[in-house]
Amino acid sequence: MLIWAFVGTDLVGGLLIDTRLPPAGRAVHLVWLILSLTLTLGFCAMTARAPHVLDSAALRLRTGPLGAVTIPVPALGRVRSAHRTISGHGLRRVPDEEAAVVCSVGSTTHLVIDLKQPVLVRLRKGETVLAKRVYTAADQPTKAARVLSSSIAEGA
């Protein structure tokens, strides 16, 4: 939602600035504005289109270009909805938990997935972690937790 707010303010601010520029500067500024909006909207589209996938074999948590983690269904344990802020972005370690990773675009997470079996996770910078807990984000965390819990109970 914050990125959409930036798009709106960028567009309005850009158009206001464009009225104050000389004609020669307007063309360059317009190209810059279009490029900026295209990149911002592209980022939104990349992360908003069903970033996580659950099938009969695995749960794949994705953060666009910032990393992904695949968890086999037999390794999934308890799933619960819990709000937490963990600084950083992408696939990364949880600072105060040795065997936990975060898979989210921003610093806010909404779901906690406890694993029955540890999963080897390759982080964005190439480091590997044997994870026993995964924090992630979802648009509808309560519904996502319910769907994942029922899928785990049914064996996906």
Rank of each mutant, 00 (worst) to 15 (best):
V69L: 14
S87K: 12
D96P: 00
G64L: 08
A99I: 04
E97Y: 03
P65V: 14
V79H: 03
V102M: 08
R49S: 12
G90A: 10
H89I: 13
A75V: 08
A68Q: 15
G67P: 02
L66V: 08
A100F: 02
T70A: 13
V79S: 09
A68D: 13
H52V: 10
L59E: 01
A82C: 05
R62H: 12
A100D: 02
G88Q: 10
E98A: 15
S56M: 01
A50M: 03
A57G: 01
R92I: 10
E98C: 00
R92L: 10
P74L: 06
G90R: 12
G67F: 05
S56R: 13
A48M: 09
P95K: 10
V73N: 00
A99N: 08
S56Q: 07
H89A: 15
E97S: 10
A82S: 06
E97N: 04
R80C: 06
R92F: 08
L66F: 14
R62I: 08
P95T: 13
G90P: 03
D55S: 04
T85M: 14
V94N: 02
E97G: 02
A58M: 14
L76C: 04
S56F: 01
G88Y: 12
P72N: 05
V53N: 05
V94Y: 05
A100L: 04
L66E: 06
D55L: 03
R78W: 04
D96W: 11
P74T: 15
H89R: 15
G77N: 05
R60L: 11
R93W: 04
L91K: 01
C103Y: 04
C103W: 02
V73P: 00
E97K: 07
R80V: 09
A48Q: 11
H89D: 13
A58L: 10
T85P: 00
L59H: 01
R49D: 14
V79K: 03
R60D: 10
A99D: 15
A57P: 00
A99L: 05
R92P: 01
S56I: 01
A100K: 00
G90V: 14
I86R: 00
A99G: 03
I86C: 04
R93A: 07
T85K: 12
E97L: 14
H83R: 12
A75F: 07
G64N: 04
V73W: 01
C103V: 11
L91V: 15
L76F: 09
I86M: 10
R62T: 15
I86W: 11
P74S: 11
G67L: 11
A75N: 04
G64D: 06
H52M: 08
R80K: 07
V53S: 07
I86L: 15
I71E: 00
I86D: 02
L59D: 00
P74I: 13
A48F: 09
P51S: 08
V102K: 01
V94R: 02
R80P: 00
R62M: 05
G67W: 03
V73I: 15
V101W: 06
